[in-house]
Design a protein around this nucleic acid. Sequence first.
DNA 1: GCAAAAGTGTTCTCTATACACCCATGG
DNA 2: CCATGGGTGTATAGAGAACACTTTTGC
Lengths: 262, 262
Amino acid sequence: MDQNLIDFTTQVVDECLPGKSIDCVIIGFEKQQLKVLLLKWKYEDIWCLPGGFIRKDEDMDQAAQRILEMRTGLKSVYLNQFYTFGSKKRSRLNEEVQLTRMRHVLEEIHGKNEKFVTWITQRFITTGYFALVDIRKTAPHPDMLSDRCEWKSLSNIPGLMMDHKEIILKVMEHLRVQLNYLPIGISLLPQKFTMQDLQKLYEAILKKPLERSNFQRKMLKLGFFIRHEKQLTGAANKAPYLYSFDEMKYNELIEKGIGFRY
Amino acid sequence: MDQNLIDFTTQVVDECLPGKSIDCVIIGFEKQQLKVLLLKWKYEDIWCLPGGFIRKDEDMDQAAQRILEMRTGLKSVYLNQFYTFGSKKRSRLNEEVQLTRMRHVLEEIHGKNEKFVTWITQRFITTGYFALVDIRKTAPHPDMLSDRCEWKSLSNIPGLMMDHKEIILKVMEHLRVQLNYLPIGISLLPQKFTMQDLQKLYEAILKKPLERSNFQRKMLKLGFFIRHEKQLTGAANKAPYLYSFDEMKYNELIEKGIGFRY
DNA sequence: GCAAAAGTGTTCTCTATACACCCATGG
DNA sequence: CCATGGGTGTATAGAGAACACTTTTGC
């Protein structure tokens, strides 16, 4: 296990571009709540976004893809770049507070690969990517520096490293503004879902309630839904229809932007 | 003059972050056409976006600000990051074709500062910024590697270095999608303008004609225009009113996004 | 007077919104 | 029976699109 860490840090220093990183905001939707995938640092109570570095022989987009796959097991999901964070204060881990908080991990590595600690504590410019995934299809997996990898509700984010909180906020703003051009429905929901699921998803992103009956009619009029048999929920009320997307039509419309006002 | 070039290249290598650059798409509007500010390489018939590097002690945003000011003389105009280009093929100048085309410049520098040529021909990741400026207030100024700095019509862009054409296309797409959230009117037009000017601006960005009378009414209803005396154009027709923006109201609405459909 | 562009008006359609109403389900 | 949430209907206000009409200007 120790050898793994040494190999990993050596590889990073030798094969990756210095001073440039990628952070992924991997977003899911479960129990009517938006969630984000986070990693917890070994030994310390501090969390961070799944991130990584760009190999010298790899496109930045490929690197993001690779990082996403390593943390979730997922290939070919919606993944897009949204912003690059370049504040001069952005040095990975080298701020006083950070150093103190991550002392244990860095000390462990320092004993094994001093070069890596120098490499990783320099100033970094990070490019943020966001992915929209179906939580139920993911198999979260921590990286070499973390011991936990979990879905956290957006309304209840733990203490984050550096500016990672800011990065998440930026994504949420991006989601809201670009909503009409993003395949949120098809990416975040399970194959079959109810109109209520979809509405709650929109409400979570827009952070405001929408009128139930109008939402349903507006959505259905878009014409990319397939209606299935009803689902008996066991609740004391009428059972809702299940829907799925006509993927062709859905993607076509999302490309152009569904001209919606909320 | 030679000493300047040596000083410049030495400074860049010593004081800037390696492998990271900034390219600015500086956009203006004149004679009812969108224009972009471009530089022409010394000795060669190849053009490029105004760009530069990030000093080790400077935020990325500050660097973009500095580059913009050096090329246009402008401070505090609308300037925003829009995308980061990280293809592995993105090495500044080191592709065969590029090397051939830029032979003269590189040879000149090579004789004076070999280190710089190595530094600048490595793989670069560049972050694109776009600025919206009033052309009439700019004083274009070439950089150390170029001998011309000019406004070029978007419909007639000369041969560009590397992926700079792609970068410009990406900006235009961004403008279209984000239109309701961008202060295009106040940034690109002179202080006083006619409704036709504004309409032509929107049409240039959206690349489609808009209905004159409806455009006028919709715009005026937004409530951030100040109407001034009429302007006699000398043409054989009714003189149009001049307008300016109520900056407070304009910026407020742009923040939220003017809920427009075109 | 005439052509051309500006400004305003009118009509029709479509959308958004609010809310009423009935339906299905389990207790 | 009732309470709860689902699905559909309807009425009203406002936005968008097309186009008619009038006004102003220089020739």
